[in-house]
Design a protein around this nucleic acid. Sequence first.
DNA 1: ACGCTATTTAGCAACCTAGCTAATATAGAA
DNA 2: TTCTATATTAGCTAGGTTGCTAAATAGCGT
Lengths: 102, 102
Amino acid sequence: MRAASRIFRALADPTRRQILQDLKGGELTAGAIASRFSISGPSISRHLAILKSADLISERRDANRIFYRLEPEQIANTVGDFLSAVCPTQLFYRRRAKRSKT
Amino acid sequence: MRAASRIFRALADPTRRQILQDLKGGELTAGAIASRFSISGPSISRHLAILKSADLISERRDANRIFYRLEPEQIANTVGDFLSAVCPTQLFYRRRAKRSKT
DNA sequence: ACGCTATTTAGCAACCTAGCTAATATAGAA
DNA sequence: TTCTATATTAGCTAGGTTGCTAAATAGCGT
């Protein structure tokens, strides 16, 4: 599956979009993320797996906790590419880093 | 359903994203759009209905043809809002018009 | 009215998604 | 090893999505 498709499908779910916004403030454990929602831990775990497979977040293990962190460049690059392809005059965007092929 | 959810779900399908790109060059009839894909006319018609219900495109009837036109501000506003909420430092964006509540 | 073209709507099948609970890792402490 | 805490994986169900074909609608010319 193409990276853009993985990313846009990942962004299609409101819980996942909220997780990304929550991670904007810094990394959080899976449990801390789950506690912000009224859905079960396993369901959040799957949302995290989907976000991770789209490279929108990354994980770091510390003891038996897993910290998740936002990867804003992936989001900005892919979504920015799409926006510039569809409505370039409405938006000015600037890359922070070279786009990497994933 | 919230506008953002309708829009991100509409963007989740690659055929619909391609339709938006195709409309960037100007308005097209339903038939002209359908002829660019290998899927059936009725399927394209539904994709167009989904894009229209998300206010990403608008339609104009001329005789028995229906012309579809891109609504780039809707896309830029909603997606831009999300990007600025999640990764503001990666992207600079500028509104062309006030956001309307739909 | 009739025919022709353009397009949508209806109805169906296959697949995907997101939620749940129960079971299974993983890591550290006693 | 056993216990506890954290988190994921497995297996299931309900509902949504996307494709198809066939039928209906819309507009215009004859």
